[in-house]
Simulated scan of single mutants.
Amino acid sequence: MKTFGGPVLFLDRSDINTDEIIPAKYLTEITKEDLKPYILEDLKLPGFDPKGPKTRNARVIVSRANFGCGSSREHAPWVFEVNGITAVIGESFARIFRQNMFNCGMAAIELPKADLDLIFSHAQDDDAAVNIDIEGGKLTMSGGGKEKTFNFEISPFDKALVLAGGWVDYADQKY
């Protein structure tokens, strides 16, 4: 079974769009794997390096509201998938991006702003990590010698997609 969680990449901004996640000029690539080096290439945030170790080592992204806005392309979740990202945590997601995450077997977890503020308090912790229990609807943020657990909800169907490994694996198991 797939493990959800790991080291965190903090992207402290709302409205991160699909062009910032994977620039449109790479949409002609033939395979998902070909997208890998271009993750978050056009994202501009103070101190952010898309080629740096925090990006390379991340398994979870924590951001703010309206993550994945812009176009409806599946390439945005795909670039996360091939880079080992298992979950994105934010206050809200663009509807199609959110569903594309579930369809690819990754978690899009919505939390209230107050919970995200607590999670962002770990942004400077070198050991910041999240452990996610999809079935139990809990995630545990750890770092800097502290730990806190948060509850979240994913619809039963979307949870089944994530646990199955995505829509194709779900369909193979059910039909």
Rank of each mutant, 00 (worst) to 15 (best):
V60K: 02
Y38V: 11
C104L: 09
R59V: 10
D34N: 14
D19Q: 04
K51R: 11
N103A: 11
F120C: 08
C104M: 11
A58E: 14
D169Y: 01
D169C: 00
P37M: 13
K2T: 15
F80Q: 02
N57V: 03
H75D: 11
K146W: 03
G5N: 12
T31D: 15
I39W: 10
S14V: 02
P50Q: 09
K32M: 13
S121V: 03
E29T: 06
I30A: 15
K44H: 03
V60N: 04
H122M: 09
N17G: 11
Y175W: 00
V88R: 02
V168M: 07
C69V: 13
D133F: 01
T31H: 15
G165L: 02
A171G: 02
R59D: 08
I21K: 07
D158R: 02
Y38H: 15
S92A: 09
E29G: 00
H122E: 08
E20Q: 15
N103G: 07
C69A: 10
D125W: 03
G144L: 10
L118Y: 01
D19S: 06
D115Q: 04
L118V: 12
I61R: 02
Q173M: 05
N83M: 05
G68V: 08
A171Y: 06
G143I: 10
M1E: 15
Y38W: 12
D133L: 04
N66D: 12
D115C: 04
I16F: 03
F150I: 02
K113D: 05
L161K: 08
R73C: 03
I119Y: 00
A164I: 12
V162Q: 07
G90Q: 07
G145A: 09
D133P: 09
D34V: 07
P37E: 09
G70K: 01
I154C: 00
E147S: 14
L163W: 03
G6E: 12
A65C: 00
P50F: 12
D115Y: 00
K44S: 07
L111H: 04
Q99P: 01
Q124W: 10
F97Q: 04
A87D: 13
K44D: 07
E81S: 06
T28H: 05
D15F: 08
V8A: 11
G137C: 06
G136D: 07
I30N: 10
W78S: 14
S72F: 08
V79I: 14
D34T: 10
R98H: 11
T31K: 15
K32Q: 14
E135R: 13
S121F: 01
T140N: 03
P23F: 05
F150R: 04
G70C: 01
P77G: 08
F80D: 02
F4T: 14
A107P: 08
D42N: 14
A94E: 09
I89K: 00
Q99N: 15
G84I: 04
E41F: 06
V82A: 11
D126K: 15
T31F: 10
L116S: 02
V88N: 05
L43W: 03
S71A: 14
